[in-house]
Design a protein around this nucleic acid. Structure first.
Lengths: 208, 208, 208, 208
DNA sequence: CATGAATGAGTTTTCATTCAT
DNA sequence: CATGAATGAAAACTCATTCAT
């Protein structure tokens, strides 16, 4: 029956957005052909234009969708960060999951795409920052602040501590992934998280 | 008169390389036109081809030149990092200079260009890493190791400490510069360096 | 309620034909989009196809309708041309009305459209000539012949005289309207008619 | 040797202009493909863009060239119109030549093209009128005025007489050529000229 | 029958690259 | 070697037309 009814419209829209992100991430905005996107989505080129009007809009929408997903994933990780029995283990676990998000191919692609196109499309930053980057750091700062209040960390400036915690995790991970070129093993991620947490706790751990 | 002797050739070559980097950085590889590069360099388009053969080669050479310069600048900073009287001040100063390199427009542009084109031209990574990124971390690790040996820092794994020191500096700086979109004031850079060194010393400082 | 009964169909058909002529006249056949026509008619694009099959048919029907109307208008003018008391006044009046038809926006548009598309669609000429141009000149020749028979004009070849009368009217009017670009005032039209009739009577008037 | 030197450039430019006019006249602006123009000119499509930038500019230049030629031809005819022995013969001859210009395929095509595109490109009128239509009528008025001064014609308003003379010639000729669809024989043109001059002289001839 | 969605073929325009001077 | 001109391949975008509801 109605299996190809209004549902088809939505399915195609999603397929196009997914395809667009894939192709944009793989080839860059300028290099990516709308032809290729349509092919990847399994629709005709004109259908892409029917839905999104032009290539630029397609980029913006595709980035928006991807940023939404990344935000959701990241917040899920951060919000689970509550002080369990063993603080070190809790932080290492959160750090590891955080790095998994960070190293997820789509996150990596999103960062690369952003870096690549920020000059031509400065508003991409607003799309992503409004939805992702800043809000994750904020949420992390909240969690760290609670731990400080609970006496388990010694932190003056929770936002700065959050930034530094994130930096200790993502900096070394970025080096290892070589701009997303190399796959970083779970093993390695755990090791990076362990080192980061080690340093973080030496700097911010309470004495007890 | 010999004003366009061998000197003219070399000048033109340099002009083309500079123009190429400028335009590639501003517009991205695919978007950048050889026309625009030639115009920026003040030569005819065919001259660009006479010197470099094709657009791809031009990208590689331009990136190479820029990476060389970045390496030189970074090493100069790191190599000046010796233990003065006041360790904190020494580290803060080095961190600040390091961030100045990191935030230099051409460095920013290089990182963006790299992120953008790494998929299409994976060998760009070799050019840059062979000449820049890794070697700076190595040099920094050396310096930190010396300070550890001198008893002024407590470090197990100097390479890891160097990575983390760099991460504590560049992570927050990257956030503030918004992918090189915003100019970060000297003030801010100093503040970032201070925080980074503060955390670093709490984690790795010797007790004395 | 039967508001969309057979009446709705016919209304829509008319609306589409009107819209089609408007858009074809404004933009030319090739440039005119079926989208634009459908929008102007207030129907869906597919409805246009349901009624007319394809764009070419639509052009033919729209031109036919317009030519019919022009013929009716012109014949009405010519048929009122009977010898009143004052021949000069009669001719000037007929000439003026004739020019009003000639300068009517839709007549102008029809002539332009015809000129534009005659190469691609030679059969448009048949549609228009069969229905309009020739028959008007014929009718005019009839009237002039009657006036000759009545001794009020001296005419050998009524068809030729009719052609020349029409030419004396439309030639200068065409110059003034600049291909239908300029609106020609009633004043001007009367003046053109007066001149035309003056010359015509000097050439063909009987002596009395 | 230098046979394909800078000369080639100019040759190609001319070839493109000719081809453009031919194709625009044959198919109309919107329908005409730059592909087809390039093919007709025997050059690559990109060469057309190198020379003229875009399709619209090409139309304007092609129309300009054609209007120049038409003006030259027409003025040559009008300027030869001096009062010979036999005025009727002189006028018939000039009228015939004038109609030859008017019925020349390129003139016909120019008028059609103008009519077709005047809505989209109103400035075409300026190009053509500034160079052709008006100036011919003016020149004709001059000649008629001289004949009036010489006592061979009785004319109050030379400009109006010129307009009417032209109308008596072109009106019937236009009818016969059916928008340039039919070729009008030399015979027919002479006949039209004879009738026009007959009527004109009955209206404006001096008594002698 | 009226419609929204989908599409294939075509359009203008751009651009890396080559060639003749 | 430097250059202006020429080009073939490709890209974004459009549009007449069809199909499923």
């Amino acid at each position: 029956m109605g299996s190809t009814g209004p549902r088809g419209r939505i399915d195609k829209r999603q397929a196009i957005l997914d395809a667009a992100f894939t192709v944009f991430a793989r080839e860059g905005y300028a290099q990516a052909g709308v032809d290729a996107i349509a092919a990847e989505a399994g629709v005709a080129k004109a259908t892409v234009y029917n839905h999104f009007g032009d290539k630029e809009t397609l980029l913006h929408e595709a980035v928006g969708v991807c940023a939404d997903r990344a935000l959701t994933d990241n917040l899920a990780v951060v919000e689970r960060l509550a002080g369990g029995e063993d603080l070190r283990e809790t932080l290492e676990d959160a750090g590891f999951r955080f790095l998994q998000c960070y190293c997820d191919p789509r996150s990596t692609a999103l960062r690369r795409l952003l870096a690549a196109e920020i000059n031509q499309f400065p508003d991409l930053l607003d799309i992503v920052d409004g939805r992702a980057a800043d809000r994750v750091t904020d949420a992390l700062a909240d969690r760290l602040a609670r731990l400080a209040v609970a006496g388990r960390l010694r932190i003056d400036d929770p936002l700065q501590a959050a930034e530094q915690f994130a930096a200790l995790l993502t900096g070394p991970a970025a080096t290892r992934s070589r701009f997303g070129t190399r796959d970083v093993s779970e093993e390695e991620l755990r090791s990076v998280a362990r080192s980061a947490v080690g340093t973080f706790l030496r700097a911010f751990g309470s004495v007890d």
